[in-house]
Design a protein around this nucleic acid. Structure first.
Lengths: 220, 220
DNA sequence: CGACGCTTTGACAAACTTCAATCCCCGTGG
DNA sequence: CCACGGGGATTGAAGTTTGTCAAAGCGTCG
């Protein structure tokens, strides 16, 4: 979807475009916390009274079944909010994909300072974007083939990060758990996309889209 | 919205559970409309300025890919609200599963009468439940086997309808499109559950849970 | 009764997973 | 500086699950 904020891996507080007041307040009220790779930011069923925003690094939300099967609900990149689930407890856990910095704000404090209305707009927007992405994800998992899933994933990532050469902040296992596949299938689809000259990999974690139309077509 | 529906002026039917003020207002402000089986209630990308509630019958929300593959986002039963997506356009279309009556309210009118706060609570709750269900659905589609998907589906339906013998308001194709399977696989899993004496079918559209624990275990 | 639509069943094919081996990148230590 | 080691990624072969195609069963409604 369209980003209201430009993404920036540096900790620069600059954000082009108009910003809501609650947004600024969040930056000034919040506490910056560092997280190591794979460190848990919050756990499933934990009380959800904090709001988070990625400053640097990236985040995944996951849910795990009793036998260890894992589903990743989403990835979050610098400038994006997460953990704003409106019920009182989290339904996914959140972990850092890499070492990074997360802005943490107490929801009640933000509400008190920003006012009900601004706070409501902020959480409403976040929840809404969340629902939107989850619904796209639903179609991907329910009805797309492995090739389409991988193509969709690369496409969305490239759109969200908006760079020429995109770095994957996650390994194959995380991609697989997001796409409902295995790492082997993900790997095979990636080589397939390279053979078709649709994307080019310059290392296992960095790629460039060679043929955007073809990729869009494959993603459907 | 098409203007070809006649309004139904039957008086408010039975509604289980406690109700909020905005809830009552919705019932009195809203217009009851009848829909025929498979009739569209709203379309994808249509403007979302109305709020809906099932009075009788049932509803599905669907998204269709260009080549016809279809994903059902959810089912809605009497007493449940739908169409409260917070962005300005619907991301799924909604259709009647069977002939039925839908309460339709203009969002802005409800807000004006109920007040911002009550209205906010109502839509917040609805959106939240929606996100909750969608996230469960995500895990189902991403990581569950065909047998687990069908078991989960029967389980959830039975819980939501809360009756001894539950009637399936939809055919196999709708179940398949919700579960990310084909009708044949759904059918096979259903016969498998019957052979295992977990559920009992008294016709293709009505079932009873014979062994709740076993079903819960299979659903994971 | 007969036709139609939906469901079930069977045989086969395709997609994806599993298991296992190898490769490759990258950091570490000699 | 280069060899070594280790973790993640890729590839291959075989297996399993699910999809496809086709036919038969079942129920309902004229």
């Amino acid at each position: 979807m369209t980003q209201t904020h430009r993404l920036d891996d540096t900790t620069a507080p600059f954000m082009p475009g108009p910003r809501a007041a609650a947004d600024d307040l969040m930056m000034s009220l919040g506490v910056r916390m560092t997280f190591a790779k794979d460190e848990e930011i919050y756990g499933q069923d934990e009380k959800a009274d904090l709001i988070y925003r990625v400053i640097s690094g990236a985040v995944r939300t996951t849910r795990v079944m009793s036998d260890g099967r894992r589903q990743i609900g989403g990835f979050y990149y610098p400038g994006e909010m997460f953990g704003v689930e409106a019920s009182d407890h989290h339904r996914f856990s959140a972990e850092a994909l890499s070492d990074g910095i997360i802005l943490v704000v107490k929801a009640s404090a933000l509400r008190a300072v920003a006012g009900d209305e601004a706070f409501g707009r902020l959480t409403w927007t976040a929840t809404n974007r969340e629902l939107d992405r989850t619904q796209d994800h639903l179609l991907l998992l329910g009805r797309k083939t492995a090739a389409e899933r991988v193509a969709s994933f690369l496409m969305e990532l490239a759109d969200r990060r908006g760079a020429e050469a995109v770095t994957l902040p996650m390994g194959r296992q995380d991609m697989a758990d997001y796409l409902g596949l295995t790492i082997e299938t993900v790997s095979r689809m990636l080589t397939q996309l390279q053979s078709a000259l649709v994307v080019e990999f310059l290392g296992s974690r960095i790629f460039k889209i060679s043929n955007r139309c073809a990729l869009a077509r494959l993603a459907d």
